[in-house]
Simulated assay, not measured.
Amino acid sequence: MKNADKGDLDAITSQLNGKKLRIGIVQARWNADITDSLAEACLGELMQLGVKAKNVTLVQVPGALEVPLALQALADRSDYDALIALGCIIRGETYHFELVANESGAGVTRISLDHGLPIANAILTVENLEQAQARQVEKGVDAARVAVEMALLLETMAEA
């Protein structure tokens, strides 16, 4: 909707009402204690925002590097208004952390741009388990809110 309160500025805003949205979620199983909490918080918030459980698809994959491929498969179906990526990468003693963090993040972004589909990226990249635990619920909730907001925003922009 256009907001005339900004003078000549044509501002486009959206409300967080997800009752008509279809959302796909891809959850990495690696660090399952964390990713299960992310998923639980995300699903709970989606329901609070009005998204119907029957309109949510949850796909689990082995790890963060597999998330983009599953997101791409969902995006190719064209059934979804937004997607959500859930995972947890904890820094270790090798370069593997950087590889997984960079490549999974780049893959998520590429799929979003290639498909013109919002993807809320809640793949945590943390130094240790304590940091992951401190963020697991908040980031799950944030991912749900971002997905709903961006889906509605793109819909509103298309109508403007």
Score class of each variant (00 low, 15 high):
Val100Cys: 03
Glu66Ser: 07
Ala85His: 02
Ala75Val: 09
Pro68Met: 09
Val108Ala: 03
Ile90Asn: 00
Thr94His: 05
Glu66Cys: 04
Ala73Pro: 02
Ala101Gln: 11
Gly87His: 08
Leu86Tyr: 02
Ala73Glu: 14
Ala70Val: 11
Leu83Glu: 07
Leu71Asn: 04
Gln72Lys: 15
Val100Met: 05
Leu86Pro: 06
Gly87Met: 06
Glu103Leu: 15
Ile90Val: 01
Glu98Tyr: 07
Leu69Ala: 11
Leu86Lys: 06
Gly87Ile: 09
Ala106Val: 14
Leu74Asp: 11
Glu98Arg: 07
Phe97Met: 04
His96Tyr: 03
Ala101Asn: 04
Glu103Asp: 09
Glu98His: 12
Ala82Gly: 13
Pro68Trp: 13
Ala73His: 09
Ala85Leu: 06
Thr109Met: 13
Asp79Ile: 05
Gly105Asp: 10
Cys88Met: 03
Ile84Thr: 08
Leu65Ala: 06
His96Ser: 05
Leu69Ile: 10
Arg91Gln: 00
Ser104Glu: 10
Glu98Gln: 13
Ile90Ser: 02
Ala64Gly: 00
Ser78Thr: 14
Thr94Asn: 01
Gly105Pro: 02
Thr94Gly: 04
Val100Trp: 13
Ala70Gly: 03
Glu66Thr: 12
Ala82Ile: 07
Leu71Tyr: 07
Asp79Cys: 11
Glu93Gly: 02
Pro68Ala: 02
Phe97Glu: 09
Tyr95Arg: 10
Arg77Val: 09
Glu98Gly: 07
Gly107Asn: 09
Ala101Leu: 04
His96Gln: 07
Ile89Phe: 01
Asp79Ala: 14
Ala82Asn: 13
Ser78Pro: 01
Ala82Pro: 13
Glu93Pro: 03
Leu99Met: 14
Gly92Lys: 00
Ala73Thr: 13
Ile89Gly: 06
Ser104Asp: 10
Ala70His: 03
Ala101Trp: 11
Gly105Tyr: 08
Ala82Met: 13
Leu99Ser: 00
Leu69Arg: 01
Gly92Phe: 00
Ala85Gln: 03
Phe97Gln: 06
Leu65Lys: 10
Ala64Phe: 12
Ser78Tyr: 12
Ile90Gln: 02
Thr94Val: 03
Pro68Gly: 03
Tyr80Ala: 12
Ala106Glu: 15
Leu99Ile: 12
Arg77Leu: 15
Leu71Ala: 00
Leu83Phe: 14
Ser78Asn: 15
Ala82Asp: 10
Ala106Leu: 15
Val108Gln: 01
Ala70Gln: 04
